[in-house]
Design a protein around this nucleic acid. Structure first.
Lengths: 365, 365
DNA sequence: CGACATACGTGAATTGGTTACATAAGTGGA
DNA sequence: TCCACTTATGTAACCAATTCACGTATGTCG
């Protein structure tokens, strides 16, 4: 639980490296004096830390500013290109891969459609092709990829194996992390798609200021991801948030009912146009969604509920009735907002997960 | 979220004080060499830390062991009597107070019955009387009480105010922490009873090896407490786990149905004796309970589910059908066990919560 | 009473950090 | 061009916390 190791002097250097590095990354480019001010450390300490990071290739000196008063200060920048990470969504109908530098800036996207009926090995090959194409397209050498993270629907256990998938054929039992590790010969992680999407929203989306977040991913099938204290909460088996399987909740049938005789987009479109029947159907869908969401909200009592996934594009047409039904069901409903990222959320969350791992490597295991 | 403060040398001393103190408390009484071995610190460092703690009154030297080889080592012990904490359960029919030393050893118990209809001010006065009687009975001076924690049913917000109580008359809006602080003129905390009971199980009960725990407190009314990573998860408003309010869950009616025309104890007794009707009723109750519990389990995916509260005394008669129904409802049900502590769980959890606060004080804010 | 075992005490060395102050290297105006 | 001003750098002294090495103290055992 709590780390309870004794500390020798090198512990100090570790924490100060961490604060200095994070200050430098926030600032982009900074002088020793500036970093000293924001971190609260002395200039000399900052210099020593940066020297060390420079030798290890994580920090580079850039040309000084011109035309300023006084002696021009040496300026330093984080070498975001010292390494790269790849985030991949292995979805039902598409593979989405993102290549990002160590600042988390996405350098390249790659997307490939795939049939929902595709066999597991086809899906895996498509994922590998897409990931490789993404990296190759950006001209990044494979050995510069430090970590890969993959997100997929279904339950993913702590080791990164898909322990249960209902939607994808043959997907149950696939060792996604293990296989993804071979793509670039680096460590690989795998997690549930909704969990990663939640992480993305907390990182750069609509959940940045929330600590406890429930993310409801809706589309052909609904799932949920949970963040506690800003960190992923996968649960013992990786199944946290999989409330949809509870019969009383009715997420199973809700989507089916919505798209009985038209595409979801058509129904939302019609509802937006004021079509009575469509509005009623969307409201009914929102009500079903709210039942499951309220179970999560009552259990977790989160700061924020984020609605994402394909259907979330419907926006207020769906959001408003969901808020209404949720307020009826919960003692005190949290704020409900739409996801910032569309289809890219899962891949972005995967990038964040991979970065977490890569950053631990920089700071020294 | 993550602490990101720079560290000067005193940080080292802080973490080493922490590890040394915790090692000493685990050992009870120990020599410098022993502490050095278990903490990984040098004997000199341990000595310096213990000197400091000795000056501040938290550590005392005890007579050396006799009859051992070599020069007898100085032996040190944690002064558990340097301060005390009080944990109180302010329940529907009873007030339970526990006085504990800084090791968490309960020195004295005090219990008082109270009518469920008692007005808020009566309940508060009874709580104060009971807490004072507990401390006075043990002959501990009031100023030696460092922290008080109180647990009660209903929703308790972050400030320790009861923001909603359905069962206790006039209880909504009571500033429990604020009022309890006056009893001994010290800092006081308040939390939901189920949450505290969960904490107690994690501390010294059946949930010691579980990180994520759902504790279901059953009695006249059912509630739940949640531990994530071994720590309390109260949620934004303190309402985390209050799944019972969801209509579909049916916790509201479950208990009422169980005790339709007999006391709960009688029904459980009859079921244990093999009475067909009683068995059916208990099974029905377990099924209702399982629906709510499964919502929590699916949301959190905990390592362990603990069943506690008055009805939990029924034991296997209730536990077995609950396990069965839960397994039907959940993808992968966690282990289900009965609470170790009976009525005392909430007060013990309150002691633990108060200790957490007191310990932070020892280590220096 | 000496051999042995174990703990204690002291001083030097190391690491990491801070403060203080002299010095370097620019800008800007006379 | 030169001088005042501004800001950064370099260096030295010092402090805090920790560790290691080694000599000394204090007990037990045969």
């Amino acid at each position: 639980m709590t780390e309870l190791r004794p500390g020798d002097a090198s512990l100090l250097r570790k924490v100060n490296t961490k604060v200095t590095l994070s200050a430098l990354r926030r600032a982009g480019v900074a002088t020793l004096t500036q970093l000293g001010r924001v971190t609260g450390l002395s200039r000399q300490t900052v210099e020593a830390v940066l020297d060390e990071l420079g030798e290890r290739g994580y920090v580079r000196e850039v040309p000084p500013d011109e035309g300023v008063m006084g002696r021009p200060a040496r300026r330093f920048g984080f070498r975001a290109d010292a390494g790269y990470v790849v985030g991949v969504e292995v979805g039902g109908d598409a593979i989405v891969a993102a290549l990002a530098d160590l600042n988390g800036e996405v350098i390249a996207w790659e997307r490939a459609e795939i049939s929902g009926d595709a066999a597991a090995h086809e899906r895996l090959e498509a994922a590998e092709r897409t990931a490789l194409a993404c990296v190759d397209g950006a001209g990044v050498a494979h050995r510069r990829v430090w970590t890969v993270a993959a997100g997929t629907s279904g339950i993913v256990d702590r080791t990164g194996r898909v322990s249960l998938s209902i939607t994808l054929p043959g997907w149950t039992g696939v060792d996604l992390a293990g296989l993804a590790g071979r793509w670039f010969g680096c460590t690989a992680l795998a997690a549930n798609d909704a969990n990663l999407a939640a992480l993305a929203e907390h990182w750069r989306g609509s959940a940045q200021h929330a600590a406890d977040v429930v993310y409801v991913l809706i589309g052909h099938r609904a799932g949920a991801g949970i963040l506690i204290g800003g960190r992923l909460h996968p649960g013992r088996t990786g199944a946290a948030g999989e409330i949809g399987t509870l019969r009383q909740v009715g997420w199973e049938d809700a989507a089916r009912e919505l798209v009985k005789d038209a595409s979801a987009a058509e129904v939302f479109e019609a509802a937006l146009g004021g079509d009575r029947d469509a509005v009623r159907r969307v409201d009914r869908y929102a009500e079903n969604l709210a039942i499951g969401a309220s179970a999560l909200v009552l259990a977790i009592d989160p700061d924020l509920l984020v609605l994402g996934g394909g259907y979330a594009r419907a926006g207020a047409v769906l959001l408003e009735p969901l808020r209404r039904h949720l307020a009826e069901l919960c003692v005190s409903a949290p704020e409900v907002v739409a996801s910032t990222f569309g289809d890219e959320g899962v891949a972005i969350g995967a990038v964040r997960l991979a970065l977490d791992h890569a950053e631990r490597e920089i700071l020294g295991l």
